[in-house]
Nucleic acid binder design. Structure first.
Lengths: 213, 213
DNA sequence: TGTACATCAGTGAACGCGCGTTCACTGATGTAC
DNA sequence: TGTACATCAGTGAACGCGCGTTCACTGATGTAC
């Protein structure tokens, strides 16, 4: 867009940041596979050797992107959950919508996090970031269960895993408009919301959060 | 394994088949991205120009693999469903397990089908194959709903989409042992079965298929 | 049954390309005194 | 305030590599007569 690049001297000043942004753009454009170190350098306006000052290699850049993605994801989920206000039930629905919203508005982050095949074994930092994001969902599940009078209390971990899988499945299959996916009779958000509602009813929860009809 | 390759003459005889098998192995090994036309040729024991006799390019080979995958997937799902015998409820559970079993035992096919980013737009044949596989799930959902006395009948399409998304989510996140994923307190199959049971109960279905306790 | 010929499915050499990576280098920045 | 120097963050040229693709070719196979 800006044909008049702001003048920069010999030193870029913020190359690490620029490289990560370039990586995001490339991932968004061509998928996590079709992104190269060289091209990231090029689109940051820098020689192909420059990135090596900031990242050991391509994988480290990708992992950095995924790491930041998990951070933003966690933040978004935490905000949406808002400590279960005004009621865990409504907050939980909001959490689900935030999940899909993130996958849709930040497809590049989402790809880097879940589809790029970054090895989590070799990267404890990244793994922990993923755990923290999932912990939001799990905490929410616990609060939701605790807040509802149930005959049998289901394990919160199971609830969290089910909702995560459903949200991830919907995001992967129908979430991004770009890829030519199946046409749906409803939005991904509606599909997830309906699914979670049915699921929670199956656990014995009714919609305590909605105004009585 | 066979260090003594069976003698073959100038003509390979079954190169198309061999290339598809090689592609599957490479995908299983390195993911859908890390598979090249040249390497497929090499591992089929043939010059790098030979594949062009059978596939226009790399994408066409990948699409062929995905196409066959969808075919096998459809067959596996159809068998598992078995026309809803002995009861749609039990048959439906079996269908779910078959979904995960396919993703687990044929990860390369599953990758090619859902994760390789093969453009479905440009490939109506492939798209239809995917539709046919999904149709099994949808038909099953219809039969399941029809067979159960419900207060309100949910749309079969919605049920099918929910179960598909849940199964796909579980398969993607926890399905393959190879990638270092999250450790689960239960198997993926158990997780899916539990999720579907809760979901169906939420729709008002009880487990009519199980022997009365 | 044999022969001539068309067709087919491979070969292997060659090409241009972009990538990842290295290297000695140099301009810019910060700091000690 | 000025100067000398160390450190840092970039340059640009070069390399080896594997890939995709093409080309004229050739061995094998099938078929007409």
């Amino acid at each position: 867009m800006s044909w008049k690049t702001p003048p920069r001297g010999y030193h870029h000043g913020n190359l690490k940041e620029a490289l990560m942004r370039a990586a995001l753009d490339l991932i968004a454009e061509k998928g996590p596979g079709g992104f190269t170190f060289a091209e990231a350098a090029r689109s940051a306006g820098v020689s192909p050797a420059a990135p090596y000052r900031h990242f050991r290699d391509r994988d480290e850049l990708l992992a950095s992107v995924a790491l930041r993605g998990f951070g933003q994801f966690e933040t978004a989920l935490t905000q949406a959950w808002d400590n279960g206000r005004p009621h865990p039930f409504t907050a939980f629905e909001r959490l689900g919508r935030a999940y899909l919203a993130f996958a849709r508005t930040e497809p590049a982050y989402y790809s880097a996090m879940f589809e790029a095949g970054v090895p989590l074994d070799a990267n404890p930092e990244l793994r922990e970031a993923g755990e923290r994001a999932f912990a939001v969902l799990r905490t929410a599940a616990e609060a939701l269960i605790a807040s509802t009078p149930l005959k049998a209390r289901p394990p919160a971990l199971m609830l969290a895993l089910h909702v995560w899988a459903l949200a991830h499945g919907i995001a992967s299959l129908f979430g991004r408009g770009d890829a030519a996916r199946r046409a749906l009779p409803m939005t991904a958000e509606e599909l997830l919301e309906a699914g979670v509602l049915v699921y929670l009813r199956g656990l014995g929860m009714e919609n305590f959060g909605s105004p009585p009809s």
